[in-house]
């Protein structure tokens, strides 16, 4: 078994399948969790009827979505309209390949994992834009414009913020980054404030890319009906939703790996720590979502270009100087 796993192709196939199944399952029940959590926050029950504690609700939802009539508007561009939901889930899942859960449990130990991650997050804008444009709907069109503006803007602070860990650890591989943190301390506190600010900005940017409140401006139900998914029905709509949750979950996992030391932790096995940290971050995201109002798109741009980008730009030289200084003193 272990010899087999040394072959990168077999390893990629095996962990790839595990990731896809695992992420899909976790995604399904994260919707259940979010609904329960929101229910408790709003002094209601959340799902209770399907299964014990409503635990079978995600399955019921999936069955419902599959039974829905698959409508394509007459004036829509059929090919693009049908391609968009598939791509959006594909890109979101692609990120899972490089998330290091344990030193061995990762589908592809890329040397340029960070680049892969950023590239796929950047591509996430395309299916949204594609689906909205193909829908031939004015609400979707406005939503698409907002999504593109937001996605491209937040790409900048996201890339700059993740440069801080990259400079500190001197690697682009996510698993090496975690290994480095295991040796030299988590990045969130290794350099006072710098790691924390980088984390906050990276987290905000991934929130913005996943279209979560307070950055769910493209979707904006109260303004744009359902944003890019206005014309989508059934499982195609479901796929967009799934992509949103996958993106959110994986963002939490990546933040846990990059800033909170991934599998590093005492006593319990590494996987437990990694999952625990991811779940805590996901709960935090959910909590934020159900307590905040939505920003306006120009305010979002202000936040990005006037605060996030300058802050990250300032962080990079600080980190670089510190790293060179520490290296001169004989390592961090």
């Amino acid at each position: 078994m272990s010899e087999l796993m040394l072959n990168p192709w077999i390893r990629a196939l095996f962990w790839g399948l595990v990731m896809i199944t695992g992420v899909m399952t976790v995604t399904a029940w994260s919707t259940w969790f979010e609904r329960k959590f929101a229910g408790r926050m709003q002094s209601r029950m959340g799902p209770t009827l399907v299964g014990p504690l409503g635990l079978l609700q995600p399955i019921a939802d999936a069955c419902k979505l599959l039974q829905k009539e698959d409508l394509v508007p007459d004036s829509a561009d059929r090919a693009l309209f049908n391609l968009a939901p598939v791509l959006t889930v594909g890109f979101a899942m692609g990120v899972a390949a490089v998330v290091p859960f344990t030193p061995t449990m990762l589908a592809a130990d890329l040397d340029v994992g960070v680049l892969w991650l950023l590239a796929l997050s950047g591509l996430m804008v395309f299916p949204t834009w594609m689906g909205s444009w193909a829908s031939n709907n004015k609400y979707s069109l406005i939503a698409a414009m907002r999504a593109v503006a937001q996605g491209i803007s937040y790409e900048v602070p996201m890339v700059l913020a993740i440069m801080v860990p990259v400079i500190m650890t001197g690697t682009l591989s996510l698993s090496d980054m975690v290994a480095d943190q295991q040796k030299n301390g988590w990045l969130i506190y290794r350099l006072p404030l710098t790691g924390l600010i980088a984390f906050v900005i990276f987290f905000l940017a991934s929130l913005a890319e996943a279209n979560r409140i307070p950055f769910d401006i493209p979707e904006a139900e109260s303004e744009l009906v359902a944003g890019p998914t206005t014309e989508y029905t059934g499982m195609k709509f479901g796929l967009f939703y799934m992509a949103e949750y996958i993106h959110t979950l994986l963002s939490s996992a990546i933040c846990a790996a990059v800033f909170f030391g991934g599998w590093d932790g005492p006593i319990a096995p590494g996987l437990h720590w990694m999952l625990l940290k991811s779940v805590i971050l996901f709960v935090f995201l959910t909590w934020v979502r159900w307590s905040f109002l939505r920003l306006r798109s120009d305010q979002l741009m202000n936040l990005c270009w006037k605060y996030a980008v300058p802050a990250t730009l300032a962080l990079i030289p600080v980190t670089a100087f510190y790293t060179v200084y520490a290296a001169g003193k004989g390592g961090v």
Binding site: I213, P214, E221, S222, F292, L293, R294
Partner: peptide, 8 residues
């Protein structure tokens, strides 16, 4: 202000 799926 906050949408049907959020703080609002």
């Amino acid at each position: 202000l906050g949408g049907a799926l959020g703080g609002g």
